[in-house]
Structures are given as C-alpha cells and as structure tokens.
C-alpha cells in the first residue's frame, strides 16, 4: 500500500464517519419531532389567549380565561388494543402560560402509528400520600393545597359577567384524592395516523356549568367530583 492509498482510505473512512454522524443526527432530530405529544387549549376551536375575551355560545355572555393548569399523568400508548408504550415521566404539569409545558416528551418510537392514548387527568392517591416531591410535583407550582393535603388536578380561573362574585371571577380548583370525593379521571382517546396533537376544549366545561350558580369550587367535594365528569369530554385529537 502506497502512502497515497493510505491517505485516500483515511479520507474515505472519515467521509463515511461524517456521513454516518449526519445520518444519526438527522435521525435524532426526526425522532424528537415524533417523540412528543402536544396539548392545545381551545375555546370553540380557537387557541385560547390568556386575558382575551370570548363569547360563550350557550350562556350568551363573555368569558375571560386567566389561568389554566392541569396534571396529565400515567400516559400509555396502544396499538390495536395492546399497550405498547408507557411514558417514563409519570406526571406532567400543563400550564397555558408556559408554552414548553404544552409539549410532553413521551420518547415514542418512530414509525409506529399508535391508535389509542390513555392518561390520567390528575394525581393518583398513592402519589398524594407520599410527601413532598420535586419537579412538576413541587408544591411551589401552586397546584398543592396547603390547608389540607392533596394536589389540585385541574385549575381554571377567569371571569365572566355571569358570575355573581367579586370582580365576576370564577375559580375551579378540582382536586383531592380521598373517597368519596376523588375527582381523578382517566381519559382514553382514539388516535388517527401520525397526529399527536390533542385539543383541550374548554367550552366542554364552561358550556356545561351554569356560571351564575357554579363559579367557585376549591375543595374536594361532591360538586368537584361532578365537575370532573366533564373532563371526559374535554380532550379531542386535533383536526
């Protein structure tokens, strides 16, 4: 082997390595795009803007959303009724004002068209009795009650002239874990090919409660559990 041949071989392998690296990098980037699911809070098919006024079609008055936070937990993906993927991170805090929280890293495998997703809206009772936790579960996130132990599963705050309250404000803090007032709901959604974006249709809640009567739920009670039933209709695969 001559010196030139050695040099050429070296160049060849270098080029191959770079190519391989690029391919890997491309793959990784591509994977990232597939790995996450996203939540899109909407009112009548419009992405919700915090502080913006919307018209409630059922109750015929305006509404403004100031805060929307909720926990999505224990996410599973299915392929033909078989559970094929369990998301490693157990609890995600979704906050409408923190756009990065709307994208959930699920480490999904590329090229599989999952046809069902299942997740909890809220925090299970075991986690609720396990003491102080960090990350998305840290009590500094404002999703943990202080006067009584328990996570708030879903928090929606805003105002509407319909609410006979100070500053016309409504507060829905739906949470707790102890029977008979456990408002945890498990959601199952069919997925069609390749679309991992999920709408959170807040009108499914606001149209179903009478804001002139129901505008303040801040404890685990029968009203909270009844309201949590509406969460089953809240989620829909984006069109």
């Amino acid at each position: 082997m001559t010196k030139t041949q050695v040099h050429t071989n070296l160049m060849k392998s270098l080029a191959t390595s770079i190519g391989l690296c690029l391919a890997l990098l491309y793959n990784t980037l591509d994977l990232t795009a597939q790995q996450q699911i996203s939540f899109v809070p909407k009112l009548y098919n419009q992405p919700i803007i915090v502080g913006h006024k919307y018209f409630l079609e059922q109750q015929k008055d305006s509404v403004q959303i100031d805060k929307l936070q909720f926990y999505i937990a224990n996410i599973y993906f299915y392929l033909d009724a078989t559970e094929v993927h369990e998301v490693a991170q157990k609890h995600f805090l979704i906050d409408i004002e923190n756009t990065s929280s709307l994208e959930l890293n699920c480490n999904l495998e590329e090229g599989i068209n999952y046809n069902k997703i299942k997740f909890d809206l809220g925090i299970d009772s075991t986690t609720n009795v396990s003491g102080a936790m960090g990350g998305d579960l840290d009590p500094t996130n404002g999703m943990y009650w202080t006067w009584q132990s328990g996570y708030i599963n879903f928090k929606l705050e805003g105002s509407s002239p319909l609410c006979p309250a100070r500053k016309n404000e409504f507060q829905f803090h739906i949470g707790g874990y102890q029977a008979p007032y456990n408002p945890l709901q498990t959601i199952e959604l069919a997925l069609t090919k390749g679309n991992l974006s999920i709408d959170v249709n807040i009108e499914q809640l606001l149209d179903q409660v009478d804001l002139t009567q129901t505008y303040k739920i801040m404890s685990p009670n029968a009203e909270a559990v009844a309201t949590s039933q509406l969460f089953l209709q809240l989620f829909q695969q984006s069109k």
Binding site: N128, S130, G131, P139, T146, W147, S149, G150
Partner: peptide, 16 residues
C-alpha cells in the same frame, strides 16, 4: 388530621 404526611405539614402554617 388535614395533613397526610410530615413533609407537607409545614405548608399549612406557612400559608395560613
């Protein structure tokens, strides 16, 4: 008995 775990007890007096 409002608080179910020692770790989260301090939240009650801190916030009251």
């Amino acid at each position: 008995g409002a608080i179910n775990h020692l770790d989260v007890q301090a939240l009650a007096p801190i916030s009251h």
